[in-house]
Design a binder for these strands. Structure first.
Lengths: 340, 340
DNA sequence: TCTGGCACTCGACTGTAGCGAGTGCCAGTC
DNA sequence: GACTGGCACTCGCTACAGTCGAGTGCCAGA
């Protein structure tokens, strides 16, 4: 059980070399490339122990060693040194994010930036409605019996829904409705609106009640209950880097998983403040992604979290670098949102 | 040069068999599976002619024949019989599209439906702003110096932009601005708004002019000049069907191309009314897609076109079936938009 | 506890041989 | 003149044997 410092050092060296070369690494190559101060034979003994403990394995008898998921886990938890971003990366981030005019724009730029910097698949969740507050509700009459509801959230998200009214509604009534919903709802988090929305109907003047009932049910249904989460994705072409070695030969399951918004949300949407979550291979709950790793974190203005972002790549990935990049991007995006 | 009926029949048989089996087809198998009424030797002679003319080729000397891009082209233009949709497909389309609440929802459902029915990569362009008319413009004050402009188009698209005003603007002035822009712009196609927007500034009361100038420049820039086209994509996992045989072994170039919105727009955005465009392999202008074929068409309410949709797959695809599906889906979506 | 040495394993690569699908061509027939 | 049967030929595919070498496990000695 005892893994002394040198054995850990050997593991670190194996992970680093394997990530860099993508080839099983042998004892001889290891002592040549790292100053371990011992002979290959000694390293071999250490390797045998590491293999017994399940941190590395041999693809075949006459090959070098490869880290297991467990090995990567140990590496990430205890062995990786934080890799500071290069100034070039820093500049890239800044350059990429200035000039964004729009929430859409911010999210799009972010996801492309992440994909480009990490050279992996990037995923960015739009600010969650569940964590947004209502900034304004606008009612726009489309016809006498149709209303478009536009909700503007403090996170910058704008959602619209078409409401089919039970009957024609005069313009003055629309104004009244608008005033009422805004008075009641502006400033409150969407997650806390249901009772307020309910109260709205009860407190409305009788002639407004049918319209308000329809309106409130639409609000409840589409904005609160089934919270409409949105996701942006980029860099799928990066899956093809490293030939077919990663992902055991088939991109299929990965691509399938990436098509499911629900899956993506599960991956990156459950973010804790200021933590970076790393899921390695088997640790992943989604079967299709057992051959992949995910690095994700939350982002938001200041220390609040409004959404998640992250990247997905082969288990054989540069964890320290990826973690650093994901964190940095999340921080920049948070700052950007804070300015807004 | 002369391709008599039987030679065309042979070509048709080759295309159909190759699409079905994905294997080069030989003369013997051909006479067995199709009632050509002649011997393999005769078919071989015909094949030699077809090869001379560039419609088919041999992957290697001892293999059967495979259609060339030119062969597919001839097949599509002259040989393919229209394949009616199965009732199951018809039902699937209807079931998929009812209950869409939203333009976003419609587009999402459509693209998934297309991907599922054709088992290929599907692309749907959101209704183009350039082909939309302004239905309503809403100005929502966010703070005293910030305005959110929400434009609602007759195609269902809703776009918003944040406008940074040159100075504080009283609520009454906002109301005036709103009235002015709506009076002037509602009903006109976005492509024709620039002179109108220009006129707006000139005709405004002096105290509104600075705000109107900022507002109009934002409108011009973001809604008209750089027309924001949006695209939805689904079914990338289908690229992995048929192993690595399609796309000459690497998905890379395809995935890269699919990440570029500009490329996708070029593929499906230049639709002519009621035409289905088929681009086969080399005919494609985008280098990365030389190994793929694209079937696309326009859609819109009635006979007008507001956007394009289509699918992308290997040159070895079921053209008649794909064409039929793409057309049918486009028609259904058009009807759906017309109801709106 | 570490090291050098040695026998061993086994995947990767190479070369050879046989198989068989498929062809092109030719002489013969209707 | 068009079609057909027959036949020799091509060439990719598979199997198999042999070699090479990277890498290992183990052991005796420092």
């Amino acid at each position: 059980m005892g893994l002394d410092d040198r054995k850990l050092e050997v593991l670190r060296a194996i992970v680093e070399d394997y990530v860099a070369t993508q080839e099983p690494v042998g004892s001889k190559a290891l002592v040549e490339r790292h100053q371990l101060g011992v002979s290959p034979a000694t390293v071999r003994n250490d390797m045998a122990v590491l293999e017994d403990e399940g941190y590395i394995r041999q693809p075949h008898t006459s090959a070098g060693r490869v880290p297991t998921d467990r090995g990567y886990r140990l590496f990430v938890d205890r062995l990786s040194r934080v890799k500071p971003l290069s100034p070039a990366e820093r500049r890239a981030i800044e350059r990429f994010l200035v000039g964004a005019v729009d929430l859409d724009d911010v999210v799009h730029r972010t996801v492309r930036l992440l994909a480009q910097l990490t050279r992996q698949v990037a995923v960015v969740q739009y600010p969650s409605l569940a964590r947004s507050k209502v900034r304004h509700l606008e009612l726009v009459p489309i016809s006498t019996t149709r209303l478009m509801v536009v909700m503007i959230a403090d996170t910058g998200r704008v959602e619209q829904r078409l409401v089919e009214l039970p009957g024609p509604l005069p313009a003055d009534d629309v104004t009244d409705l608008r005033r009422l919903v805004n008075e009641k709802l502006v400033g409150s988090p969407l997650s806390e609106t249901p009772p307020l929305v309910q109260a709205l109907v009860d407190e409305s003047a009788p002639h407004l009640r049918p319209a308000m009932a329809t309106l409130s049910s639409v609000l409840l249904e589409t904005l609160v209950e089934r919270h409409e989460e949105r996701i942006a994705l980029a860099g799928t072409a990066n899956l093809t880097r490293g030939g077919l070695l990663d992902f055991q030969g088939s991109l299929r399951p990965i691509l399938e998983a990436l098509e499911e918004e629900v899956v993506l949300l599960k991956l990156i949407g459950e973010a804790e403040p200021s933590t970076t979550r790393v899921l390695i291979g088997d640790e992943n709950e989604i079967d299709n992604l057992r051959a992949a790793s995910v690095v994700s974190t939350g982002y938001g203005p200041g220390s609040t979290i409004v959404g998640g972002l992250g990247v997905l790549g082969p288990t054989r990935m540069d964890y320290p670098g990826t973690i650093a990049t994901v964190r940095a991007v999340a921080r920049y995006v948070g700052d950007l949102l804070a300015q807004n």
